[in-house]
């Protein structure tokens, strides 16, 4: 029996209990509802490189505390397709190259799951059969030039998620 059905039964059972208690005083109706699992995407931690130095590349690994992190929560056991829109350069006082993207997705909120390369091509993942969760960890490498202008550089990582079953 799937989660939605279980929840439906729970709602129905509660309704029937309430109906029994009120039976001596009034007429009753029975209401049922199917509770459907929503889809939740959350960016839980930005990908932060902190300070970098001109001419010295810096990598944030998926296992680092400053890796980018997403959480997907949805229908348990469902398969999702994940695609990414990633910058090739960050913007700031100038342009700063970023690349060598790395990824790890897991059913628990730890690395050590399935390694993948974030890109515009689809990566498939199955949401945990119990919790409906999938956790993503994203890393990358920035390559400042020797003449890289000082200042703050930023960009955006976009995660697209769609169920493959509909």
């Amino acid at each position: 029996m799937n989660t939605a059905s279980k929840l439906s039964l729970a709602v129905l059972a509660l309704t029937l209990v309430g109906a029994s208690a009120a039976q001596a005083q009034s007429a009753n109706i029975t209401a049922t509802a199917t509770v459907l699992t929503p889809l939740t995407l959350t960016g839980t931690a930005n990908l932060a490189f902190g300070n970098v130095f001109p001419g010295i590349a810096k990598t944030v690994a998926v296992t680092d505390a400053t890796s980018g992190r997403f959480t997907i929560a949805g229908n348990p056991g469902s398969q999702v397709s994940m695609t990414f829109t990633l910058p090739a350069n960050l913007t700031g006082p100038g342009s700063l190259a970023i690349g060598t993207w790395t990824g790890d997705h897991n059913n628990t909120n730890t690395t050590g799951g399935t390694l993948f390369t974030p890109s515009g091509a689809a990566t498939l993942a199955t949401l945990d059969a119990g919790t409906g969760n999938r956790f993503l960890f994203i890393g990358a490498t920035v390559t400042p030039t020797v003449a890289q202008a000082a200042g703050a550089y930023s960009g955006t990582i976009t995660l697209n998620v769609v169920y493959t079953g509909l």
């Binding site: 932060a48 910058p87 930023s154």
Partner: peptide, 24 residues
């Protein structure tokens, strides 16, 4: 989102996250 030391000569780097939920 970018974090770093407020050093006048520093290069600080960070990326924000955007999520897109696609439904039928």
């Amino acid at each position: 989102p970018v974090a770093g030391t407020p050093d006048s000569g520093a290069i600080t780097v960070g990326l924000t996250l955007e999520v897109r939920t696609v439904i039928a």
